[in-house]
Design a binder for these strands. Structure first.
Length: 306
DNA sequence: TCAGTTTCCAGGATCATCAC
DNA sequence: GTGATGATCCTGGAAACTGA
């Protein structure tokens, strides 16, 4: 008996499997869609390899030897495993157990990830999410290394080598605490907008943003009294002061004590997108997660529009 | 040294035929 | 009818060769 894998190819195992099932060289050949002499030749090689006749010709057909019957189980299992290996991987969210690492700003956490988590837990209870903050200049490397599976960015901050998909267009709205005079009027002039003290969100501690650029075009400016690095601090500051803020609409709508007041000027919004590395592009689990992100984002679009 | 081409040979296929 | 075997053809891989 030969022990080298070199002398045993997969086609011989397929032939053995067919012979075990059909107990006939002719029928095995038909099943494999090759000629009878080809299967006969394969049987010769199998006999040489295993050092056993494997099948003995009898009036009732080709009867397997004890060695052939011994091989039947393992051969069937091996052929089944190889078939499974060659088939495209299937992803079942209900039975999947894995962890995705996502990189997001605190805005994306509230606007995208929290709705995503709600859907994820009902559709894929075994999938865990780890959320990391966006680190400027490192996201592309984190995605390439596999430290992060999916990042929530904007098209402007997405590296060209990454795959990306736009999720929705975000707009800015003016917000104040419900006890604020402007919140009770539900309207605000441009002069009042500039008069009230503002809270601004800036991860770099800046005191100006897109709103100030737009005001500058009109030769106006507002009073920015506080700059914070997190959107989540804004509602509490507005509750305790008479300040107002300009926030992304999706964020403003998730905070109950805040009232959205129509903006007295138009400030350009931004596109929220997700980005991932090519190594995860074809991954069925990753594709499923991306589709869910798109679906959840579009659901929020409908909610906001109504 | 490396990439591309050519040559050689083993292995797998079919066809024809024989044996059981 | 079915399996085994020899003759022949085709294909693909390995080795040798060639040129940049």
């Amino acid at each position: 008996m030969k022990n080298e894998l070199r002398s045993l190819d997969l086609n011989l195992l397929k032939a053995l499997g067919a012979l075990l099932q059909e107990r006939s060289v002719t029928r095995a050949a038909h099943r494999l869609a090759i000629s009878q002499p080809a299967v006969s030749g394969m049987l010769v090689k199998l006999r040489e390899h295993f050092g056993d006749p494997l099948f003995v010709r009898t009036p009732d057909g080709m009867m397997p030897t004890a060695r052939a019957e011994e091989l039947a189980g393992p051969v069937t299992q091996i052929l089944r495993d190889i078939t499974q290996l060659l088939n495209p991987p299937h992803f079942d969210p209900l039975s999947a157990t894995l962890t995705f690492t996502l990189a997001a700003t605190d805005y994306a956490l509230s606007a995208v990830l929290i709705p995503l988590i709600a859907e994820l837990k009902s559709r894929a209870p075994g999938i865990n999410l780890a959320v990391r903050p966006i680190i400027d200049g490192q996201v592309t490397q984190q995605l390439a290394r596999g430290d992060v599976d999916l990042a929530f960015l904007t098209p402007e901050t997405t590296a060209e080598e990454l795959h990306s998909r736009s999720l929705y267009q975000e707009e800015y709205v003016c917000v104040a605490h419900r006890a604020h005079p402007a919140a009770q009027r539900l309207s605000m002039t441009l002069e009042q907008f500039c008069h009230y003290e503002h809270v601004l969100v800036s991860t770099e501690g800046k005191f100006s943003g897109p709103t100030d650029e737009k005001l500058a075009e009109l030769h106006l400016e507002r009073r920015v009294g506080v700059s914070v690095n997190s959107f989540h601090a804004v509602p509490e500051i507005l509750r305790l002061t008479t300040m107002i803020a300009v926030l992304p609409r999706r964020l403003a709508m998730t905070t109950h004590d805040l009232v959205i007041i129509p903006m007295p000027l138009t400030v350009p919004g931004f596109t929220k997108s997700m980005a991932w590395h090519a190594r995860r592009h074809q991954d069925p689990a990753h594709r499923w997660l991306r589709a869910l992100c798109v679906e959840v984002s579009q659901q929020d679009d409908i909610t906001l529009a109504t």
